[in-house]
Nucleic acid binder design. Structure first.
Lengths: 111, 111
DNA sequence: TCAATTATTCAAGAAACGTTGAATTGTCTC
DNA sequence: GAGACAATTCAACGTTTCTTGAATAATTGA
């Protein structure tokens, strides 16, 4: 991930509804959720939801597929991982203080 | 770090000039750089720079101190680490795919 | 094919953001 | 104190982003 991609991912996540959507989708894995379901969970009108979903899709943070008459969205976890990796290694150049925050978590994937 | 703090950090970083500033300041550690120096390095007029510096400060990503007639800014590396930690552990709930991206880097702080 | 369901697109207005230049504040040196 | 230096604040402007509601597209089932 380069700076341009990181920028678009960061600004996509820097909005409440969109951060909520990503947090909702990550635990659903590749199975994902339909747009309607997402709208119910994040309490969001359809057209507003579509707007935010397409922003996340453009940033590469979620992927869309059709299932009958519904659209299923799922988190692009590799892109999210890429963003974290960018922050940790390209932005912060392996800085010890920053890295320690990651290591401090008891059950995180880095321990 | 909670969702509110993460949101403000993410949206602060989702802007080119501000991401540049953070990338510039992290390697400088607690020593930091003066506003004028930062302005030269990121090619930014004084008032515009001030605007972005205060946005980063409000998000807790940088700290300011005065040294004579100059203001010295330094990265708040713990806050940056906290953001990464949030993305990895609270947002992504220790997701394996996301975590793997972090582990994959050869010389990152997580290996 | 017609109606119902699901979701997107469009246009308009409101709100937030980013840029600019001028004015201001704080600090230093003479 | 006067002048220079470093940085911030302010107001104005244009741009982008977000929200809303109405219109449109795609799919399904009677």
């Amino acid at each position: 991930m380069d700076q341009t991609q990181a920028l678009s991912a960061l600004s996509a996540l820097g909005q409440e509804t969109r951060l909520q959507i990503v947090r909702l989708l990550v635990p659903c894995g590749t199975e994902g959720l339909s747009a309607g379901e997402i709208g119910l969970r994040v309490n969001c009108a359809a057209s507003r939801l579509s707007f935010h979903l397409s922003a996340l899709e453009q940033a590469g943070l979620i992927a869309a597929r059709r299932d009958g008459r519904r659209m299923i969205y799922s988190a692009e976890r590799r892109q999210l991982g890429g963003l974290i990796d960018y922050l940790l290694n390209d932005c912060c150049v392996g800085d010890r203080v920053v890295g320690a925050m990651c290591l401090n978590t008891s059950d995180g994937p880095c321990t």
